[in-house]
Simulated scan of single mutants.
Amino acid sequence: MAQLEANGITIEYEQHGSGDPLLLVMGLGGQLTDWPEGFVEMLVAAGFRVTVFDNRDIGLSSETDWEPPKQVRAVVGSFAKRPPRSEYTVVDMAADAAGLLEALGIGSAHVVGMSMGGMIAQQLTIDRPELVRSLTSIMSHPGDGRSGRIAGTVMARLARLREPTPETAPDRAVQSFLLWSGPHYDPVEHRARAARNVERSFRPVGTRRQTTAIMASPDRTPGLGEVTVPTLVVHGLLDRLVKPSGGIATAAAVAHSRLVMFPDMGHDLPAPRWGEIVDEIRRNADRAATSATSSAPTRPPTASAPGSSVLQDVSDR
């Protein structure tokens, strides 16, 4: 792993493989080590040079020093349309990602974001389109305040969880993911990774700051309407943290986007679906190479047989 200075902060990053540059943007509270090793290896095998990094306030990147509201309070405030005060927003985090690419000398990259990382990837594409070859938004939403809202029962259960300590954090991570993950979720493997992450960095207040940043961020829907790079949207039909409407709204906002929804996926990356997701990312990246000389494909929405993915190409609206 290595560090560099970008956008006024220190960013911890790591690179894997060679080939087409691809930036992976992690979600809320996640460290770069939360990307499954096997998933990254598949991306490398698909011909990508993968860069992963810690977002600000998490892992080994710069930590800020302001006191955010409690996480549940910030979420409740968003339901009441009272955005919390925040020292930064997703816009600033997208500028971090842009600064990382520029500091690494990467002129442009395929950008893949998961959950909050999807929001950052969307904003980066809106603000710095010259840096983005293709966009993949996984289990995210456009920030319109309506789509992708957390299930009420999940929020209520989260409110009853105690603040983590270094000793309780691994078990609390498992308890949280059991609320929104799909049937392929492996709590034993997740707890082991969470324990390793605690040893690397323990910043629960950073997760609260990032939550506040999400809630204080502007609606990206108008900006997404101007996006012209090939766009893939992936979502799980079992997602209860960011409901499937978030993925649907994201795809609806971007002309010619491709929407892929998995019936056995919650708010997680199910290992049995890694191959399909990587294939879709590769296909979306390949569209970028031909987009200058051919128009985006338009096909009617199609639903596959039960047990496989629901596919939709979103055409002119």
Rank of each mutant, 00 (worst) to 15 (best):
M215L: 13
F202D: 11
P36W: 03
F39G: 08
S108D: 13
L100V: 09
D65P: 03
S304E: 08
S217H: 01
A98S: 12
Q123C: 05
R133C: 07
T298D: 12
V90I: 15
Y13T: 10
R56A: 13
G307A: 05
R146E: 13
I58N: 08
P272I: 04
V188S: 08
D20N: 04
M1Y: 05
A103K: 11
K81Y: 05
S18P: 00
F262G: 01
L24V: 10
G99R: 02
L32M: 15
T10K: 10
T153S: 14
P263Q: 05
L124A: 03
S201E: 09
L4T: 14
M155S: 02
A80T: 08
I9Q: 06
A103T: 13
F53Y: 15
K243A: 15
S62C: 08
L32P: 12
V234H: 02
S137T: 13
A251P: 12
H256A: 12
I138L: 11
P263N: 05
G38N: 09
P244A: 11
I11S: 13
I277Y: 00
D65T: 14
S78W: 01
R209E: 12
P300M: 12
S309K: 04
L269N: 05
H190D: 11
S201R: 00
R203E: 13
G77S: 08
S137P: 07
Q31M: 11
R273Q: 13
S295R: 02
Y88L: 09
D264C: 03
G145L: 09
D65H: 10
R191F: 09
S309Y: 01
E226C: 04
I58Y: 06
H235N: 14
R157S: 09
T212G: 14
A94H: 06
E87G: 15
W35M: 05
R196A: 15
G247L: 11
E226V: 03
A151V: 13
P36G: 07
R208V: 06
A80H: 02
A255L: 11
P142E: 01
P230V: 06
V90C: 07
P204G: 00
L237P: 02
R133E: 13
G307C: 03
G19Y: 03
T89L: 09
A156I: 08
P244K: 04
V229N: 02
F39D: 11
T207W: 01
A195C: 05
R56Y: 02
V40C: 07
M1H: 11
M93E: 07
S61C: 08
R317D: 14
E14P: 06
V254I: 12
H141Q: 15
F48P: 03
T64K: 00
V72L: 12
V314L: 13
